[in-house]
Design a protein around this nucleic acid. Structure first.
Length: 478
RNA sequence: GUCCCCGUCGUCUAGGGGUCUAGGACACCGGGUUUUCAUCCCGGCAACAGGGGUUCGAAUCCCCUCGGGGAUGCCA
């Protein structure tokens, strides 16, 4: 069996496409299929080499390995459509000679006008077949005007196209509803996606096409071409689309859609993979955090639900936090360090930092969170969050600040501050539990949330400790 | 407009005629553990889009309505 993932290099890898890549990968693993990576770069204006590279990188980062592709070759290459034009030209000739296609001299302006007219009349636009039976003289006349023809595929009426979709079930189209003869080669000679996918899929011996549902309405066109060319049609599986919280197609305004950005923010590839893989179905056990092998073991195309799914950024984050917490310390540290280095260029990678990261890592959902979590250890005065300020302005808050202030000017010193302060304040004020710890935490870190105070204090150091108390005394008590 | 797909808690889903007073997970709320945060544990909230059939019985099958999405490109 052979599957393929066929991105067009017109931007970063989108999570929706990443999901397609992931499910294809699950399929490959499950059935020991060959995974083909094909670059669909026939949109010459928008395709870039950089996009191609970043897409390949993101796929590798996600843990997806392919067997044939532009970077590693294979027996069915080339794997970029832009390098296969000679092949397509042959087929176009065949179609032209067989009477399945013809040159069309209609201009974009003429077609646009017809489309608008149809829209104004609330009617579907169907290409009327204007150039279907042009005489040689007529063609010459157009060409002498400087018109460059497109190639159109002839769509006969009354053909029933039935797709036995592995996810959607049996889907039936009628050739009348396709919109008439459609363009397969542009006037500049570059063939169009809907035409060459089917050629490449059959030439590359793809047995299962697993792709987004947005391609479902295009499938009958592709089948028509296959029929005209006498090519076999692969098995199809059209996956439901990913939507934003407002139920429209997932886009940037909903949140992060680019895999590269998830990587930059410190998501783990395993977590993204896991989340994407399970969007649309579940294991029998209902488990959510699942290693790839287990996913593969239970994966089956028909198990995927038919309805589109809303991308839940929150759940992804939760999933990532689980993966992050389960990481052994050295792996986690490796992951955190670049963020620390960038935010605090002067900090040195020493035992102190190791301990700081260790105490704080449990509060991180994604790796880049480390910057904020760690920030409580830097600076002579803490940066106060609003709820922490409010806490310190309460009577209990002031009492604790006042008491701490008195202590650092009397019995508390460098050698005993981290072990004695809290208990001494407790004795002196009678405050305990939340009423003791929360204001104290706010005073020392500027936050209401954070790691255990017992661990924070020795790592913070006596000097900063006292400076922060002095500051709070100044600001909230005086 | 036309064609196609879809419709179970806010979200992802389990469910394929009786075992469904509809199960799990995220989120949210409450409680417990932690002298404090987070974790963890326990509990709670919350859904079969609506209407007709078929049937002894319908979340499950059929039809209609409504709602959502996609396509309708010399984009992919």
């Amino acid at each position: 069996m052979r599957v393929r993932f066929a991105p067009s290099p017109t931007g970063f890898l989108h999570v929706g496409n990443a999901r397609t890549a992931v499910l294809n990968f699950l399929f490959k693993k499950k059935y020991n299929a060959t995974y083909i990576l094909r670059i669909e770069d026939t949109d010459m204006e928008r395709s870039t080499k950089e996009s191609e590279e970043s897409i390949l990188n993101d796929l590798k980062w996600l843990g997806i390995q392919w067997d044939e592709g532009p970077d590693c070759g294979g027996n069915y290459g080339p794997y970029r459509q832009s390098e296969r034009f000679d092949i397509y030209r042959e087929y176009t000739e065949k179609l032209l000679h067989g009477g399945h296609a013809y040159h069309c001299y209609c201009t974009q302006e003429e077609l646009d006008a017809q489309r608008q007219k149809a829209a104004a009349a609330n009617k579907p636009f169907v290409y009327p077949g204007t150039c279907r039976n042009l005489t040689l003289e007529q063609k010459k006349a157009f060409e002498s005007q400087g018109r460059k023809p497109t190639v159109r595929f002839k769509v006969k009426d009354g053909i029933t196209l039935s797709i036995n979709d592995q996810i959607k079930g049996n889907v039936v189209f009628n050739s009348e509803n396709i919109g008439g003869d459609f363009i397969i080669v542009r006037s500049d000679g570059v063939p169009v996606y809907n035409y060459i996918v089917i050629i490449d899929d059959t030439l590359m011996n793809v047995t299962h096409v697993i792709r987004g549902e947005d391609h479902l309405p295009n499938t009958p066109k592709q089948m028509l071409i296959a029929m005209a060319l006498g090519l076999p049609v692969p098995v199809y599986a059209h996956m439901p689309l990913l939507l934003g919280p407002d139920r429209t197609k997932l886009s940037k305004r909903h949140g992060i859609t680019s895999v590269a950005v998830y990587r930059e923010q410190g998501y783990l590839p395993q977590a993204l993979f896991n989340y994407l893989a399970l969007l649309g179905w579940t294991l029998e056990s209902g488990e959510e955090i699942v290693p790839v092998e287990k996913l593969v073991a239970e994966f089956e195309l028909p198990k995927i639900g038919k309805s589109s799914a809303i991308f839940d950024f929150q759940k992804l984050k939760w999933m990532n936090s689980v993966y992050l917490r389960n990481l052994p310390f050295d792996k986690a540290f490796e992951l955190f360090y670049p963020y620390i280095e960038k935010a605090y260029p002067t900090v040195s990678n020493n035992e102190w930092l190791t301990q700081v990261v260790d105490t704080v890592r449990g509060n991180c959902e994604i790796a880049s969170d480390i910057v904020k979590e760690i920030s409580i250890f830097f600076g002579d005065t803490a940066e106060f969050e609003e709820d922490a300020e409010n806490m310190l302005a309460t009577p209990e808050g002031k009492t604790i600040i006042q008491t701490a202030y008195e202590l650092i000017h009397s019995t508390i010193n460098e050698s005993n501050y981290s072990t004695e302060t809290l208990n001494t304040i407790k004795q002196k004020t009678g405050l305990k539990g939340k009423m003791l710890f929360m204001p104290f935490r706010a005073m020392v870190t500027g936050r209401l949330h954070g790691p255990e105070l017992d661990k924070i204090l020795p790592l913070l150091g006596y000097e900063r400790f006292t400076k922060r108390i002095e500051y709070c005394h100044q600001r909230f008590v005086k």
